[in-house]
Lab assay of single mutants.
Amino acid sequence: MEVVDPQQLGMFTEGELMSVGMDTFIHRIDSTEVIYQPRRKRAKLIGKYLMGDLLGEGSYGKVKEVLDSETLCRRAVKILKKKKLRRIPNGEANVKKEIQLLRRLRHKNVIQLVDVLYNEEKQKMYMVMEYCVCGMQEMLDSVPEKRFPVCQAHGYFCQLIDGLEYLHSQGIVHKDIKPGNLLLTTGGTLKISDLGVAEALHPFAADDTCRTSQGSPAFQPPEIANGLDTFSGFKVDIWSAGVTLYNITTGLYPFEGDNIYKLFENIGKGSYAIPGDCGPPLSDLLKGMLEYEPAKRFSIRQIRQHSWFRKKHPPAEAPVPIPPSPDTKDRWRSMTVVPYLEDLHGADEDEDLFDIEDDIIYTQDFTVPGQVPEEEASHNGQRRGLPKAVCMNGTEAAQLSTKSRAEGRAPNPARKACSASSKIRRLSACKQQ
């Protein structure tokens, strides 16, 4: 084909351009004929944790799935940006308080904090938690009735009371019990989460009196709706648990309003109706937990002794299953770290194939690490110290990083047969305790 000078094309009309061969290198194709290559998922490591896909996002930050490269346990990490926390009232204080509380709590029905990582340079905090497959609110939203069968609701409620009793025994008032803060594992274990607005009572406090509340409006008791200066913290949790039980068994809320002012007005009056299909035992329990006067409201001991709580409820309806993943529609909620794991395991070791967030990740503290002497050669063979940054567990980050890069360049065919977990650990520049 004859090559045409581009400067001469402006002298031709459209018809003349076609005659000189423009149609031979300008093609129009339908979008259905285009085959897009999927974007390669680059592996990203935060300390010893391999990052997966997004699980959810809230006002405080994002939650992603991660894999512990040492234990191969599935975890969830809450990623918090200090810049964003400053824009939220009491944001930083709530996060630090939640970390302090979770560090000393150990119960099967309370979410466990596994690790805390802090990135000084990017001003990011990573709260590594045990993995929960789904939230209770997500399960309720997945069915038209917006409720659980009585047998399933009873099982979840009993676990909620177990976890709540443990928190109260530790002198902690949750203040925000609701389905949105109750998570579930694949085995059906309920976990109380989000202790950001919780309050730890003084060890020598005479009672459970509280003065502040930041919980969700629909789950607040009349004493808070009416603006009382002080109130019983434990009875606030009992009320919120009662509203939660009402919601998961009926699909409704005892109090509603077009806006928060109308909602608080209705809560302050204390008038509500219980659907007739709840039955006398459940209705009596709800009335005891939603008692207007805090002094007359049920205690956890009274809830445990109630006939509806103690009764064994046979399954009359099919239980609400864990819904498919909202993004991938995966009904099994498979591990989202698998594509990243395959990338590390299947590809040659190259620095361009993975990302390490930083050479140094500070753990379990908000301060910069200490310094240790770096050896410097002298005339008599002895070495003197220069400062060298280290990880919180004493690992020399720069030395590990250099060693990792040197190993990656060394030709050794046997290394390709290593397991995925050992490869992740070798790529991680800074081991965590």
Rank of each mutant, 00 (worst) to 15 (best):
A93W: 15
N90R: 06
H154F: 02
P319W: 02
E265F: 06
D258F: 04
R87P: 09
W239T: 00
R86L: 04
S213L: 08
L72W: 07
K96Q: 03
K423Y: 11
K44Y: 12
T189F: 09
D365F: 06
V372F: 07
S19H: 00
R405N: 10
G10I: 15
G381C: 07
L50S: 07
M22S: 15
V63L: 02
E33A: 10
H107F: 01
E92F: 14
S299G: 08
L167R: 00
Q399V: 06
R384L: 12
K84N: 05
D208W: 02
F264E: 14
K82H: 07
S422D: 14
L80Y: 07
G58Y: 00
L353V: 11
F234D: 08
D359L: 13
K178T: 05
V133C: 10
G279F: 09
L80M: 02
R409G: 09
P149W: 03
K262G: 10
E342C: 08
S334P: 11
T24I: 06
Y362L: 08
C418T: 14
G163H: 00
V128S: 02
N393V: 03
Q137Y: 04
I99R: 03
D194S: 00
T250Y: 10
P38Y: 01
A43V: 03
E120Y: 05
H306V: 02
W239S: 00
T209P: 09
S69E: 09
D358W: 12
S419V: 05
E291Q: 10
G61A: 10
G408L: 14
P144D: 12
E265D: 10
K175A: 05
L252S: 12
R415G: 13
S232R: 11
M392A: 14
L102D: 02
L182G: 02
Q432W: 14
E317V: 10
H107T: 06
Q382M: 13
E357D: 03
A414M: 14
V143H: 12
N412K: 04
E130Q: 05
V236F: 08
M18R: 04
A218T: 04
L50V: 04
S334R: 03
E199R: 15
K78T: 01
L285P: 00
K403Y: 14
K235I: 06
T24L: 08
K262I: 04
Q364L: 10
E351Q: 09
T395E: 10
S334N: 14
G233S: 12
C151E: 04
R331G: 11
F309L: 04
E376I: 13
K64P: 05
M139Q: 07
E293Q: 09
I99E: 15
H168N: 01
V116L: 07
P319M: 11
I300C: 04
Y166P: 06
S421C: 02
S428A: 07
L341G: 12
S422I: 10
S142Y: 07
R40M: 09
A397G: 07
N393K: 05
Q159A: 07
E291C: 09
A397V: 04
K388E: 11
G381H: 14
Y261C: 06
Y118N: 01
D358H: 02
Q399M: 03
A273L: 05
A389G: 12
I303S: 00
R103L: 05
K44D: 04
P6V: 12
E291T: 08
I192M: 09
A198T: 09
L190M: 08
Y246Q: 07
I46V: 03
P275V: 03
Q220A: 10
S142P: 10
A153M: 00
E57V: 05
S232G: 05
K108R: 10
G270E: 11
L184H: 05
G394N: 05
E14K: 02
N94I: 07
G61E: 01
K388L: 04
G91L: 13
G394F: 08
D365H: 10
R425W: 06
T395F: 04
S283W: 04
D194G: 00
G385P: 09
V338P: 13
T244R: 00
C278G: 07
F354A: 13
P281A: 04
L245Q: 02
P373G: 13
D365Y: 11
V243F: 03
M139Y: 13
M139G: 03
R86M: 00
E121K: 03
D176G: 00
D53M: 02
H154N: 01
L341W: 09
Y118S: 06
P314R: 09
A273S: 03
G251C: 00
K122Q: 01
D327P: 14
V337A: 09
M18Q: 09
L160E: 01
E256L: 13
Q432Y: 15
R331V: 07
L282R: 01
K262F: 03
E98L: 02
G163R: 01
A318V: 07
K178A: 04
T189I: 10
A318D: 13
A153I: 01
T244S: 03
E130F: 06
G242K: 01
F148R: 00
R297F: 00
S169A: 07
I177D: 00
E349M: 10
L400K: 04
G215C: 06
K96V: 03
E98R: 01
S213C: 04
L183F: 05
D277W: 04
R405I: 14
I274H: 02
P222L: 01
R384M: 10
E199Q: 05
D68G: 07
M11W: 15
S283I: 05
L252F: 06
V116C: 02
G233D: 14
G15Y: 14
K41A: 09
L341P: 13
S299N: 14
D343S: 10
E199A: 12
N412Y: 13
Y253D: 04
T209L: 06
D208V: 06
Y272F: 09
N94L: 05
H107Y: 01
Q170V: 09
T244N: 01
S169I: 01
T32V: 11
Q7L: 09
I224E: 06
I322T: 05
G270P: 11
G61R: 01
T249H: 15
F219G: 03
A410R: 14
K416I: 13
V243E: 01
T402Y: 12
T402H: 01
K175I: 03
E165V: 02
A200M: 15
L285S: 00
T185F: 06
A429W: 08
T367P: 11
E396W: 12
C210D: 11
Y118M: 15
R86W: 01
F264S: 03
K403M: 00
D258Y: 12
D141P: 00
F354W: 01
K97E: 11
P222D: 00
S19P: 10
K403R: 06
K329D: 14
E98S: 12
